[in-house]
Simulated assay, not measured.
Amino acid sequence: MNSNYDWAAPPPNYHDSDGPSTSRRSNSETDYPVDTKRESQDDEFTTGIPQISGYSTYTVEFAKNSFHMDYVIKDSTDRPVYYVDNKAFPSTFRGGKPDVVAYEGGDKTGPVIFASRSNIIGNCHEVCFGDPALGGRYLELKLKNWVSLTTTWSPPDSEKKYKFERMYGKEAESLGGRKTSLLSLKLTDVETGEIMATYLNDGFQTWRKAGTYQIKPNPDIGEEWDKFVMLLCGVLTEKERRSRR
Score class of each variant (00 low, 15 high):
165 E>K: 15
93 F>R: 08
108 K>F: 11
128 C>A: 11
102 A>C: 13
175 L>M: 13
107 D>W: 12
102 A>D: 04
230 M>E: 02
216 K>E: 09
142 K>G: 04
221 I>G: 09
158 S>H: 15
169 G>I: 01
194 E>Y: 04
170 K>E: 09
212 T>S: 03
148 S>G: 05
96 G>A: 10
197 A>G: 10
213 Y>L: 10
127 V>A: 10
210 A>P: 04
167 M>N: 00
91 S>K: 04
131 D>L: 07
205 Q>R: 12
172 A>H: 01
139 L>S: 14
193 G>H: 10
103 Y>N: 02
144 K>I: 03
135 G>D: 08
127 V>M: 07
148 S>Q: 04
158 S>W: 08
178 R>F: 04
102 A>Q: 06
217 P>Q: 13
100 V>F: 02
190 V>G: 12
133 A>Q: 12
196 M>L: 15
164 F>K: 00
143 L>S: 05
173 E>T: 00
216 K>R: 15
200 L>F: 11
199 Y>V: 01
183 L>D: 02
129 F>W: 05
213 Y>V: 06
205 Q>K: 12
125 H>I: 02
121 I>A: 11
220 D>W: 13
164 F>Q: 00
173 E>S: 09
132 P>L: 09
160 K>V: 14
178 R>Y: 04
187 L>M: 09
108 K>C: 06
224 E>N: 14
203 G>F: 02
91 S>C: 11
175 L>W: 00
119 N>I: 08
163 K>P: 01
199 Y>H: 05
188 T>K: 06
105 G>Q: 07
91 S>P: 03
121 I>E: 08
126 E>H: 15
95 G>E: 07
190 V>E: 14
149 L>W: 00
96 G>F: 10
109 T>L: 11
176 G>A: 06
216 K>C: 04
91 S>D: 04
108 K>T: 09
217 P>D: 08
222 G>T: 03
119 N>C: 12
97 K>V: 07
190 V>Y: 10
117 R>M: 11
107 D>K: 13
163 K>I: 02
156 P>A: 14
135 G>E: 11
99 D>S: 13
192 T>P: 05
143 L>I: 08
201 N>M: 06
95 G>S: 11
225 W>D: 11
94 R>N: 06
209 K>P: 00
197 A>R: 04
113 I>Q: 01
196 M>W: 03
134 L>R: 14
139 L>W: 15
135 G>W: 13
114 F>C: 04
187 L>G: 02
231 L>F: 09
127 V>Q: 07
135 G>K: 14
188 T>A: 08
121 I>L: 14
112 V>K: 13
130 G>P: 06
215 I>N: 06
98 P>L: 03
212 T>G: 01
111 P>I: 09
195 I>G: 02
94 R>S: 11
124 C>L: 11
150 T>F: 03
138 Y>T: 00
135 G>P: 10
155 P>H: 12
190 V>I: 13
218 N>I: 03
107 D>S: 15
223 E>C: 11
109 T>K: 14
106 G>D: 05
187 L>T: 05
225 W>V: 13
107 D>V: 14
114 F>V: 08
152 T>R: 10
149 L>T: 03
114 F>H: 01
153 W>Q: 05
191 E>W: 06
136 G>K: 12
154 S>D: 07
196 M>F: 05
92 T>N: 09
108 K>D: 07
214 Q>N: 13
103 Y>W: 10
141 L>K: 05
132 P>I: 07
170 K>R: 15
166 R>G: 01
150 T>D: 06
210 A>Q: 09
